[in-house]
Design a protein around this nucleic acid. Structure first.
Lengths: 331, 331
DNA sequence: TCGATTGCTGAGATCGGTTGCAATAACAGT
DNA sequence: ACTGTTATTGCAACCGATCTCAGCAATCGA
């Protein structure tokens, strides 16, 4: 396959390369007959423009990095999925960047995205987003964060209303008749995780009950430890709220190993609404985050900001998704 | 931030840009003092080379696409994770491409990777890899496939020995005392899926028992259907082998809804060895694929081929991973 | 001491496009 | 027919590197 550059198309069509360029990137600037002729010729040759050359010259590309801590976590996987789709609906190519929670890698990805002239990037943070880091790369105005960013309104964000989610969970459980409801915290020190726990603490106290945090760890084993804690209690709660679905899975699994059945012996509710939850045993009742919306909105926010410089903070509403892991408390 | 090109570094260091270029990409071709001086200056300016410009000129880049059907599937997620790591250990940037099983998208990604001068690509196939498609893009010699490719030895592959895996599962179950073992097929029409089922059929017959395929569907609901089938049987098997972990999850979940407990009432064993399985209820016994190895090896194969043109077909050994979903048959 | 290597650096073309500017063509108005 | 737009297209510089060729100095063998 002889290298197919813009010049060979130009020659084949009998025009100058700038005309070919225009035919593709600014069609209205070329007489329609010429344009169609060029397009036809290009088509015949199987020509496509080099995104590299374009990016180099234009100083802006269509590569958009999605920075996540761990793609193995189904939440980020689902996010990545919807984002790839949202991205290439708009002609972008998503670059998946996995940091494994290493801030140095995040830094590396930031410089890389600058070098690639990425028009913007999306960050789904593992640890609290360091707004200094964002600034340091003169990139504060080109990133959308999927989490709350403390004390810095200059970067657009899209989040889900944590408090509302916890409220939904609590209401569901109360309606079922539960009064003693425990909480197991989740991975990562994100603001979101913090918000959920705060909401739990606050809302529980507000309703007159005493909060019961079974585990407040921030690693993947919080679920297991929370369950063990539960198993050792004399008077365990009748329901458990997990900070996210993965933790809920771990809780249920560990509970099962201890001979406690869900939902017969204790109800468990998660937070995320992962598709995976439907295939769990039992199917997980959970607070569903509109992940697909988050993906689309993140990209929209970025584009909007690029266009008119506006910085928005979108807060989405979660929904209660009742499946099999919750029921009335055992008498 | 004034644009940091090679020329500004050159000027700052008082040398020609070609020297700067050499200092970075062919250090031994530059007098060590000069080189160190240049590097120091560059460092001070915070300069990094533009991968775009490099790729354009060199006609080869460090972008390597990983084409997967569905990142939401934890198997591919784990693969992606180890591959990103393997990739940037070697200085590549992994581009995650999600096809959702759409062949048109696969085609699109192939042309894109050509345009980006990707030195090679990795394909984790959803549907049987069409070797015609590979050829069509003059890319046959630049792809590593994580599956068997029928009737075409020209593309390197890395796979796991399906037959051996099934054998391990069967042996484990036999050792526990099971004699009646069902099978539920899994997602996607890959060769791998086919191989697993064939192995099951063959090995079962060989041991004198009659194979019992509970469901042979190739979608995500095969597990659910398989379980339903099981529930309707008068004389159900005492153990079930699932074609992969996700299917096993679904089987166990559906079984649970039907009041059948695992492993008390029936043993279930999966295939993949997902980390997730440890957090399932019960923790899933499974045949573990060396996913991390697959990732590294895929990249090694590609590099090796690029270097000396060799085309290898690596077959890895799976391992039995006993967790909680299998036990002796109910008396 | 002199031509032949060898080591290091500078020039300048090139990769595949984009874009401001100039040139030409076509079209209006009077 | 003549001049002032306006629509199209060509020209050539430029984006940020790489790489072949040359030039020049230092080193080597005899």
């Amino acid at each position: 396959m002889p290298d197919l550059s813009i010049d060979v198309v130009a020659k084949a069509a009998g025009v100058h390369r700038s005309t070919v360029s225009r035919a593709f990137s600014r069609p209205e600037a070329v007489k329609s007959e010429t344009r169609e002729h060029i397009l036809r010729v290009a088509e015949g040759l199987g020509y496509t423009m080099s995104p590299l050359a374009q990016a180099l010259r234009r100083k802006t590309s269509t590569f958009i990095p999605l920075i996540v801590p761990d793609i193995t976590n189904p939440f980020f996987a689902e996010l990545a999925k919807t984002m790839t789709q949202a991205a290439d609906e708009r002609g972008y190519q998503l670059l998946l960047c996995v940091t494994n929670g290493d801030p140095a890698k995040t830094d590396g990805y930031f410089t890389a995205m600058q070098a690639m002239y990425a028009p913007f990037g999306i960050v789904a943070p593992s640890t609290k987003v360091d707004s200094e880091a964002l600034k340091r790369f003169d990139f504060g105005h080109k990133v959308v964060v999927i989490d709350r960013v403390e004390g810095d309104d200059s970067v657009p964000t899209v989040t889900v209303d944590s408090r509302r989610g916890i409220m939904l969970a609590l209401d569901h459980l109360h309606a079922l008749g539960h009064t003693s409801i425990g909480y197991v915290s989740g991975i990562a020190g994100t603001h979101t995780a913090q918000d959920r726990m705060d909401a739990y603490l606050e809302l529980t106290a507000q309703s007159g009950s005493t909060p019961l945090v079974l585990d407040s760890g921030s690693d993947l084993d919080a679920g297991t430890r929370g369950a063990e804690h539960f198993l050792q209690m004399d008077n365990p709660p009748t329901a458990i709220i997990a900070a996210n679905d993965m933790v809920a899975f771990a809780v249920i699994s560990a509970l099962g190993r201890g001979g406690v059945r869900v939902p017969e012996d204790v109800s468990v509710i998660g937070f995320d609404g992962l598709a995976l939850g439907a295939r769990f045993n039992p199917a997980l009742t959970t607070i569903q985050q509109p992940i697909a919306d988050m993906g689309h909105i993140a990209i929209e926010l970025a584009e909007k900001q690029n266009a008119d410089g506006s910085v928005d903070h979108i807060v989405l509403e979660p929904q209660l998704l009742v499946r099999g892991s919750t029921s009335g408390p055992r008498k």
